[in-house]
Each structure stands twice: as structure tokens, then as C-alpha cells.
Amino acid sequence: MHKFFSNRKLVIVMVCVVISIGLMTFSVAVRNRKATPPLIQQFGNDVAGFTNTIVSTPVNLISNGFGSLGSLLNTYQQNQILSKRVSQITSTQVRDEALQRENAKLKSQLKLNDTLTSYKAINAAVITRTPSSWQNQIIINRGENAGVKKNMPVLVDTGLAGRVSEVNKTNSKVELITNNNAATNRFAVQVNATNGKVINGIISGYNKTTGLVEMGNITAKAKIKVGQKAYTSGLGGITPKGLYIGKVAKVSTDDYGLSYKIYISPAADLNDIEAVTVASRAQ
């Protein structure tokens, strides 16, 4: 025992391991309980975020240049397909406007101000991404100053992308829905079934090889068609209702054959995000 403590290197190693575990536990506890990290960490993150843009902005510009060159080659084909859809969209838009107006009128008659569907949008650009295999996390250039709060849902133009996991003054971290870890907050999701019923569930995981999001904790048994749209249900607080997630790709039972599991193919391309919208529910 005496020799054990006289060995200086061993003591250093032990102290380092203890400090490391302590710090890790501390940051996990802060992540679970507090809305923002400690002030020193926030300050450090803000400085790092600012200086990081000096490197990341030119790099992103170059890659965007290559990206637009690539998309230029596809433009003709895309134009042909899209021009066919324009006429459909105009009619939908007109109808949408009419419905929105009607909705506003009905709400004012009922004295309903904000329902589950209403939210304010905060636009942000992606600065960088966590270089990690298991933490699918991006860092965006809007933070507490712009009104971003922890746990707010984050959208890309095509659908739901993830959730704000840490807020600093000028930047924040976003955990994507492809994240598979236990600390991820899950989204409450709805899918329309064939008989007019609505199936509720929670996003429970992501399969890396198939690229499908799993929806578990399903309450009711009803027939669900492949291709149905899945969207957030607005239950459980901060997420607004009706954020589009993706289409149902497969329906199966879970490992024990007792409950359903729905596989959703996400609408957003979660490995190619340049700009995001943080949905802040009006409160």
C-alpha cells in the first residue's frame, strides 16, 4: 500500500481519472437539469464560435461554390419537373390562404389566441458540426440573444431536423433526430391511420444502415398505410403541433411482437444542412 502511493505517476493518473469523471458527471447533470451551461462555459463557447467562423466561413463559401456548380448541371431537368407542379401549388396556396383567414376568424370568435400550431421562426446558419460518430450535433449561429431556448425544435426547409440541446449567448448546439443516445429528448409524433384515427407515439431511435427513424410507444392498434405523413403532435410542452417529419416507410411489430413500431423516412436530409429554422412556440 505504501508503494502504491509513493508512485508519483500512478497518483497523477488516478487524480486525472477522478477529475475527468467528475467533470463528465457535472456536464451531464447540467445538461439534464439546467437551461444553459455555466457562465464561463458559455463565454468560452461564444469566443470559440466567433473565432471558428473566421475559418469556417471561407471553407463553407468554397464548398457552396462547388455545390452550386453541381446543381447548375441538374437545373434543366429540375425545371421541367417543377414547372409542372407550379400550377398545382398556386391553387393550393390560394386555398391555404382562404383557410388561414377562415381559421383566424374562427379563432377570434372563440377568443383563442395561440393554439398548439402557432410558432415564431428564428432563422440561423450552421457554423460547424461535431466531429463525432455518435453525437450527431450541429452548431448554429443564433443563441440566447436571438431568443433561442433549450429544447426548441429545429427545422430545415423540408422538415424536422432536431432539437436545441445547449444554448449560449450567440450560438447553440442542435442535436439531430439521427442521434441515438439515451440523453436525447424524444419528440411526440402523430400519424393518421386509415380509419380516420390518429396514432400517437414517440420517436425512439434511428437506424443508421437503413436511414429510418423509429417511432415507438404506440398507444392504439390501427392500420397505417405506408406513405402516410408523420408530424409532431404538440403534446408535452415546447414543440408546436404539425411540424412535418417524414413519410411512413414500414410498419412492423417490436422485438417481442407486442406493440407496433413505425419506421419513418425523414423528409429532411440530415447530413446536408446549411441553414435551419428554430421554432419558438408562442407562450
Partner: peptide, 16 residues
Amino acid sequence: FIMDMFYFGTLGVYLF
């Protein structure tokens, strides 16, 4: 330490 703070949000990993 900066990596832990800025990229990962879990302190004490890359620091050591």
C-alpha cells in the same frame, strides 16, 4: 478543453 466545450458539450474527455 476547448473541443470538449465547443464541440461536444461534455467536459473532461478530450481535456485528458
